[in-house]
């Protein structure tokens, strides 16, 4: 192990020139050490009630109904559902008052669906983070003692989430070093990781796979589709989210969630990290936010 916690593969003699092309250390230092943030502006919308003019251009621009403005003027109520958000940034582009900004925060995974919904009513005091209800976290942490065997089920995704879930197994993220692995059968799994809106045609297969998994077990709903139907919400051919079919323990927003956002969600599922998002509020800027700190 190197000082930054990443593993350093040994080079074979004589192959130095060749292996330089691949880079000698590629694995991220998660969970300790600096987070390899994308060097690009974030895509997570954040609403600051004080500056809002209540015009509602943002809600009109949202392609997915994830953002709603009720009432108008400074007295308007603004609701953001991070579960349905596609992180496309159209709402921020449409906002003239500056109340909406895009921030680089993607540790958005939560245990309760309602924690993905931010509601700003006029006159409300600045929202304070509620106390973490961590009984569930503790119980899961004890049960799985830091290891997790996952069965991935694509319940009708566009295959975007599969790119990012698959990336977790590559050298850059190297999931198995964290005691987490993907298994081929639900009989061997502690957890189902489900992507896609759950199409009508996958509903039965998802139910059967869930039933085949020995208890105790958990379910992670991944991506805007897995949480609420994503861009396919309200199609008669989909069920609008995994929790319409099987109970869900952890929700991981994104379209698709990046591998780092997925790692955070898995760490949350194992109870190794605190939930950052409560009632749609998250700590930002990073002064209040220690990245990926362990317990």
């Amino acid at each position: 192990m190197s000082p930054d916690g990443s593993t350093r593969p040994e080079k074979a003699a004589g192959s130095e020139r060749n292996d330089d092309a691949f880079g000698s250390v590629v694995t991220v230092a998660f969970p300790l050490g600096p987070r390899p943030a994308l060097r690009a502006p974030g895509r997570t919308p954040r609403h600051q009630p004080g500056q809002c003019d209540g015009v509602g251009a943002c809600a009109g621009a949202c392609p997915n109904g994830a953002l709603r403005v009720e009432g108008s003027g400074p007295g308007a109520t603004v609701t953001i559902d991070y579960g349905l958000c596609l992180f496309c940034g159209l709402c921020v582009d449409a906002c003239a008052s500056g109340a909406l900004e895009s921030v680089a925060f993607d540790e958005l995974a939560v245990r309760r669906r309602s924690d993905l919904i931010s509601i700003h009513r006029a006159g409300d005091a600045a929202p304070s983070p509620p106390v973490l209800r961590d009984e569930v976290a503790e119980r899961i942490g004890r049960l799985f003692a830091g290891s997790l065997a996952i069965r991935e089920v694509d319940a009708g995704s566009c295959n975007g989430c599969e790119v990012e879930v698959g990336a977790l197994t590559w050298p850059r993220y190297d999931l198995e070093r964290l005691g987490i692995r993907f298994v081929a059968s639900p009989r061997h799994a502690d957890a189902l990781l489900v992507t896609g809106p759950v199409t009508r045609n996958m509903r039965l297969a998802l139910l059967k796979t869930h039933r085949a998994m020995p208890g105790p077990s958990i379910v992670l709903a991944v991506g805007a589709c897995g949480i609420a139907g994503g861009p396919f919400v309200r199609s008669p051919q989909v069920e609008n989210g995994v929790d319409q079919v099987v109970p869900v323990e952890v929700y991981v927003p994104g379209c698709p969630p990046s591998p780092m956002a997925l790692l955070y969600g898995l760490w949350l599922a194992l109870g190794k990290v605190d939930q950052r998002l409560h009632d749609g509020e998250f700590p930002f800027p990073a002064g209040e936010h220690r990245s990926n700190s362990g317990p």
């Binding site: 621009a61 392609p63 997915n64 596609l86 496309c88 159209l90 694509d154 009708g156 995704s157 566009c158 295959n159 975007g160 989430c161 599969e162 790119v163 896609g196 809106p197 199409t199 009508r200 045609n201 996958m202 297969a205 994503g230 861009p231 396919f232 199609s235 008669p236 051919q237 989909v238 698709p256």
Partner: peptide
Amino acid sequence: YTHKGTERLFEGRAPGPATLLAESVSGD
């Protein structure tokens, strides 16, 4: 198994926002 009724969902939308649906036909 992954049929989502996508072509029907395009109907009635403006072209700009509907681009996101086109990105999710084969999301890779």
